[in-house]
């Protein structure tokens, strides 16, 4: 059987907020190591890779590997029935066709449970090689969210240019052009830092709407890491973490736009 107890059930709500725009349904793969999900959007332009480590859960038991196919809109409905500080337990019997979500209020005087039907999903998995990226940018996640939101007003694409000077985000459209440049800084408040690890300068162009969807994960982590190399997909990574617990990560891969 599978049973996982999450002290802060609100974490799963935030994870769902971060993937529900891109995916209608997805398989959660349960193993001894934890809960994992890998799924592409319908147009195969972006991929979500979620890893929630077993150690992040208050209790975690997985007797045999199983894959739980879920409709994410249904899961959103169920998670709406919980409070952010509820303790969440997810459980399923081996070979079951339902998964159960149990919400317990912090003081223990309210317990609710919801069964959700599982789906058989035939999802394609991609092999993603370990890559040394030519530039790795670490920046505040709310800043990333604001930049992609602001530039999406201009055009369907955002160019990200990373060089020794820093990072430049640009977008051009009918109303004109927007450029936002970030210099590497060493402000005393390390949360505001933009740090660039550069092997070689890279400029790549990506569809604005996917970057906007990725930015929905900004609530999970104060930091985001963007990794780029010439002519390969961008990786946007958010840690799933609170001040006292490291749950894992959510990574998004986004195929670039190229000259026709």
């Amino acid at each position: 059987m599978f049973e996982a107890r999450l002290a802060e059930g609100g974490i799963l709500k935030k994870v769902l907020d971060a993937i529900k725009e891109l995916l209608n349904e997805a398989s959660f793969d349960c193993s001894e190591a934890g809960l994992q999900l890998q799924a592409m959007d319908n147009s195969h332009v972006s991929l979500v890779s979620l890893n929630l480590r077993a150690e992040g859960f208050e209790n975690y038991r997985c007797d045999r590997n199983m894959s739980m196919g879920m409709n994410l809109a249904s899961l959103v409905k169920i998670m709406k029935c919980s409070a952010n500080d509820d303790v969440l337990t997810i459980k399923a019997q081996d070979n079951a066709d339902v998964v159960t979500f149990v919400f317990e209020s912090k003081n223990g005087d309210r317990v609710s449970d919801f069964d959700m039907k599982l789906m058989n999903l035939d999802q394609e998995h991609l092999g993603i090689p370990e890559t040394d990226y030519a530039c790795v940018i670490k920046m505040p996640s709310n800043e990333f969210a604001k930049i992609v939101r602001d530039l999406s007003q201009f055009g369907e694409s955002i160019a990200i240019a990373c060089s020794k000077q820093g990072v430049k985000f640009s977008s051009t459209g009918d109303i004109g052009t927007g450029n936002i440049k970030l210099a590497q800084n060493s402000s005393a408040d390390s949360d505001d830092k933009v740090v660039v690890d550069l092997q070689e300068p890279v400029t790549l162009t990506f569809a604005s709407r996917y970057l906007n969807s990725f930015a929905k994960a900004a609530g999970l982590s104060e930091k985001v890491t963007l990794s780029m190399s010439p002519d390969v997909p961008l990786v946007v990574e958010f840690k799933v973490a609170t001040s006292d617990n490291d749950y894992g990560y959510i990574r998004y891969y986004l195929a670039p736009k190229i000259e026709d």
Binding site: L126, G127, P233
Partner: peptide, 14 residues
């Protein structure tokens, strides 16, 4: 003109 690539151009199915 720029065209959108898909992930299949970069990663293989497992």
């Amino acid at each position: 003109m720029q065209k959108q690539t898909t992930l299949f151009s970069f990663f293989s199915r497992t």
